[in-house]
């Protein structure tokens, strides 16, 4: 749950980029860090292994300035995608306010997407949160690989696989090129802040 300092009118919320291993979560954060330098409030912290796999989490704090009379800061996190880091994912999800689920468009990752989404649902439930109620956005990443002749999943299939019941907004993206990264973040922030506005009864 976001931290709301009523006296100083400061709101600090937490967004987590979730998804299977190698789907591009860290690439999203790296792009946000490079492209949004003026919004970042400190360096991006990234702890990875030799194979560029996220080991613990990536962390990037950004400042959004004043919104409805409150200074809003956002902490962006990624989780390690590999299945073996389940306890780290649970830890990073603690007190989350909004989630970007980065799904891999490659056909060969279809099953991994579904497994990771189930893992998200379970980990949210363990902290008494409901995947149907939390602000959530899907990002269908690596769309550019279709043009390179690689088999990618049609959007309709990804929607059916992942978003059939949830019916949340989605963005197509190519995080490596930066396409769709900003749009995903904007959508997730809008959804999360509107949710928090109701929860915290935050107004001018």
């Amino acid at each position: 749950m976001a931290v709301f300092n009523v006296r100083e009118r400061v709101i600090e919320c937490k967004l987590v980029f979730y998804g299977p291993g190698r789907c591009g979560k860290t690439t999203n954060l790296e792009y946000i860090y490079k492209a949004g330098k003026k919004y970042t409030t400190s360096d991006m912290v990234s702890i990875d292994t030799k194979g560029d796999r996220t080991l613990f989490f990536d962390f990037l704090p950004i400042g959004l300035g004043k919104i409805k009379g409150c200074e809003v800061t956002v902490q962006l996190y990624t989780v390690p995608g590999q299945q073996k880091y389940s306890s780290t994912r649970k830890m990073v999800l603690k007190n989350v306010d909004g989630v970007v689920f980065v799904a891999d468009s490659l056909e060969v990752r279809r099953k991994a997407n579904v497994i990771s989404l189930k893992d998200l649902q379970q980990n949210l439930a363990e902290q008494n949160m409901n995947i149907f109620k939390i602000p959530l956005i899907f990002q269908y990443n690596k769309r550019d690989l279709g043009a390179e002749g690689l088999p990618i999943l049609p959007i309709e299939v990804m929607e059916k696989d992942l978003n059939g019941k949830l019916k949340v907004p989605y963005c197509e993206a190519s995080a490596l090129k930066g396409d769709g990264v900003g749009a995903t973040l904007k959508k997730c922030l809008a959804l999360t802040l509107s949710h928090l506005q109701k929860e915290l009864q935050w107004s001018r």
Binding site: R22, G51, D52, V108, R109, L145, G149, P151
Partner: peptide
Amino acid sequence: QSLLKEAEIYRSQGLFDQSKE
């Protein structure tokens, strides 16, 4: 050539299992 390209891209993406396949 097409399979080779696919394998190479998976490898560059860190999807080593898929690349090996």
